[in-house]
Write a protein that binds this DNA or RNA. Structure first.
Length: 115
DNA sequence: GACATGACGATTT
DNA sequence: GAAATCGCCATGT
């Protein structure tokens, strides 16, 4: 049937990890990609997030780029919703950038003990 | 099927 | 240390 179910699998993998992100924590696209075993296709993670609108339960605001920069904030209902939501969880955001990013960084490949 | 684009990352200059 | 460049892979035109 789905001879091209490649993206569906990938999307579900990404969603599963993003939903496991604990409160007040964030991760990066590359970290998720690496947890899936394809750290090089970090773009695909971002692409999957683009389709996250099909899954309203996806805390996409907890997923930022490797710089801790809210690169995808513009894809939310409002360009400020991502920032506001992160701050609401106790995450400090300044100039669209997460403060103490490395401190609150949550690596799925480690926390989920994915080898 | 070639060309361009994209919520990225790492490396090199 | 900032800017430029390559890599990677799926999607759209």
């Amino acid at each position: 049937m789905n001879t091209q179910a490649t993206h569906l699998d990938f999307f579900e993998q990404v969603y599963a990890i993003v939903k496991e992100i604990p409160f007040g924590r964030v991760t990066s696209y590359g970290a998720i990609a690496q947890a899936l075993g394809t750290k090089k296709s970090s773009r695909m993670v971002g692409w999957a997030m683009n389709a996250c609108h099909t899954q309203p339960e996806i805390p996409a605001h907890r997923v930022v780029n490797r710089n801790g920069l809210l690169t995808g904030k513009m894809h939310f209902s409002s360009p400020t919703e991502m920032e506001e939501r992160l701050v609401k969880e106790g995450i400090q955001v300044k100039n669209d950038q997460i403060l103490h990013f490395q401190k609150i960084f949550w690596d799925p490949s480690i926390e989920l003990q994915i080898k």
